[in-house]
Design a protein around this nucleic acid. Sequence first.
DNA 1: TAACGGCCTGTAGTTACTACAGGGTCAAGC
DNA 2: GCTTGACCCTGTAGTAACTACAGGCCGTTA
Lengths: 145, 145
Amino acid sequence: MRIGELAKQGDCDVETLRFYEREGLLDAPAREANGYRSYTEMHLVQLKFIRHCRSLGMGLPEVRSLRSFQASPELACGEIDQLVDGQIARIHQQIESLRLLEKQLHFLRDTCHASRKASECGILRTLAQAAEGEACSCHALPVAE
Amino acid sequence: MRIGELAKQGDCDVETLRFYEREGLLDAPAREANGYRSYTEMHLVQLKFIRHCRSLGMGLPEVRSLRSFQASPELACGEIDQLVDGQIARIHQQIESLRLLEKQLHFLRDTCHASRKASECGILRTLAQAAEGEACSCHALPVAE
DNA sequence: TAACGGCCTGTAGTTACTACAGGGTCAAGC
DNA sequence: GCTTGACCCTGTAGTAACTACAGGCCGTTA
């Protein structure tokens, strides 16, 4: 099958496929006489594997690792475990800092309404005060739930 | 003060300051006779404002907006409100998808231990099965809490 | 005079793609 | 025979927000 067909079946962009090939994630396919790439079912399986890993938030280096582990699965189980654990830890960390961020923004947002009567936006004032060196109230929020 | 001093007081990198200047976030300072940048206290306040906004997860375009709103605060309150609301919505969305991701990865991780006796890593097998076209169990998780 | 730290400009690298520019290939329609 | 259109090719530049040089100037100290 040609690249357009693989892109359709793998639900991704043609340019992305060429990118994966350049990055060594997708095996380089045979070429037709005219130079067009000629893919097999194996490439579709590879592609789906890559896209599935990506949809789980793994980066390309992680996907590369997993693909190389596939060559010798019985050896790699510990490393695979570790890789997934690392992902989980990273994402958990991201969630925590985003939750804090959300709380800080809510606080900032509330300062607007709190000082509306002053006909001056409390958000800007809070941000500007922080810049002036005063302790900002949004970042002084307790981290714990 | 020179760029190194501003960087120290603003707790960021010298290169970042030059970058902010290029991007029009930080006003271009006067120059000494030898071409060195010469900053004032105003620049430090500007920089702290920028860094504070950045630490709240705002992008440079948002910071640019806020800085321009500072020129006419009484006019801009509604827009500032909207900007912060947009940030909150975006971050909330991010948190939700990361929480789902975390759950999927936990599930994947558990498949490893579930099939350890088979001396074949369940993670790899689950990922590979998904690539083969089988319904993957990790993505079939219920989205709701 | 040489070494050192700081400063300058300008460019390239990071992630995972995306979006062209400029050109070749092939089948269908006039 | 010619054109149109969809598809393919390579190679390069863009995205966000910096970071990291290369190559060179300025000013002080040993």
